[in-house]
Simulated scan of single mutants.
Amino acid sequence: MLVMNNVERHQFIMNRLQQKGSVNVLDLCKLLDVSSVTIRKDLKLLEDRQLLFRTHGGATLINPYTADRTVFEKERIQASEKTAIAREAASMITDNDSIIIASGTTVQAMAREIQPIGNLTVVTSALNVAVQLIKHPNVEILQLGGILRKSSTSVAGLYAERILSDFFCSKLFLGVDGIDLEFGLTTTNAQEAHLNRKMMEVSQKVIVLADSTKFGKRGFGRICGIEEVDRIITDKGISPHTVKALEGMGVMVTVV
């Protein structure tokens, strides 16, 4: 390959980003025959010009960091996809089941779709989930207590975590703000992430409900690694490459 000057190298990086959506430092080093120090300087300069976002080991065109938004804003985003995911998740509940439903707009949509045949016990941190289920006479709701996060209408903190230690449930239905193949599952709030981990400890299976916009994103609080999840339910917007990578990590992926 001919030696490129800075401008040509930057153009090459941007062209590859447009084609692939993301780039990797090591790949760029091989393609351009330059050091990783040079590539990292290039990526920093391009990020300073607001042309890309640097990530761990590379860069992307899409901002990988999620911001905390209210549940009322989130429920309008990807609404039809969330409903389809919610229906699939609700169909996994069995008669006389005991489940945990965490917080988020997709699990709230799931609560709307639940039509229990037998008795159902639900442990939840989310007030909006409890409100959706309270109309069913055969659903017993255990509402966790603690500090109420107004943006998510759910609780977090030590009180909620202590209550969880008294139970063991068949399934945890978990909503997230980001799924990164390297970093794992995240949410925008550290306390919520800690509560989600406690929920995982007292659940036989972990089922994640996430629309396709959540992939490649990172929130502030890390919940767990990908390999700790049993199943992910998402929509058709997910890339085949991501599905293959998740399945390679032992995760069952359901696309609706």
Results as ranks from 00 to 15, higher is better:
V256L: 08
D42H: 04
G221S: 05
T66F: 03
G145S: 06
Q78I: 00
T121W: 05
D42G: 03
K44Q: 14
G250F: 08
S125K: 02
E247C: 02
M14R: 12
R54T: 11
I114R: 08
R87V: 02
K150G: 05
V122S: 12
T105F: 01
K236G: 06
A245F: 02
A156C: 07
S203N: 05
R231P: 00
H10P: 00
I62L: 14
K198M: 09
I163Y: 12
Q132P: 01
A84I: 02
S98T: 14
E8W: 00
Q191C: 03
R162T: 09
K20H: 12
R16N: 09
V7H: 14
S125W: 04
M14E: 08
V34H: 05
C29K: 13
Q78N: 13
L32M: 15
L43A: 02
A245D: 14
I62V: 15
K171L: 05
F53A: 07
D180P: 00
R49F: 05
I141M: 12
T83D: 13
I13F: 06
G250V: 01
V243Q: 12
Q115Y: 10
I99T: 08
I226T: 10
T242H: 11
L127N: 12
L45S: 14
N15I: 00
V123M: 15
I99L: 10
L246D: 06
K30M: 09
A126R: 04
K74L: 15
D33P: 00
N119Y: 09
R149D: 09
G175S: 15
T234G: 12
G250C: 03
F173N: 06
Q50G: 04
L164G: 03
S170Y: 03
R40N: 13
C169I: 07
S152Y: 04
A130Y: 06
R162N: 15
L17A: 10
I141C: 13
S98N: 11
L174E: 10
A210L: 02
M14N: 04
A79E: 15
A79W: 06
L32V: 07
T66P: 02
D230H: 14
G178Y: 01
I163H: 07
V129M: 01
T188I: 05
Q18M: 08
S239G: 03
G216E: 03
G146D: 03
E192D: 09
L144R: 07
G237W: 02
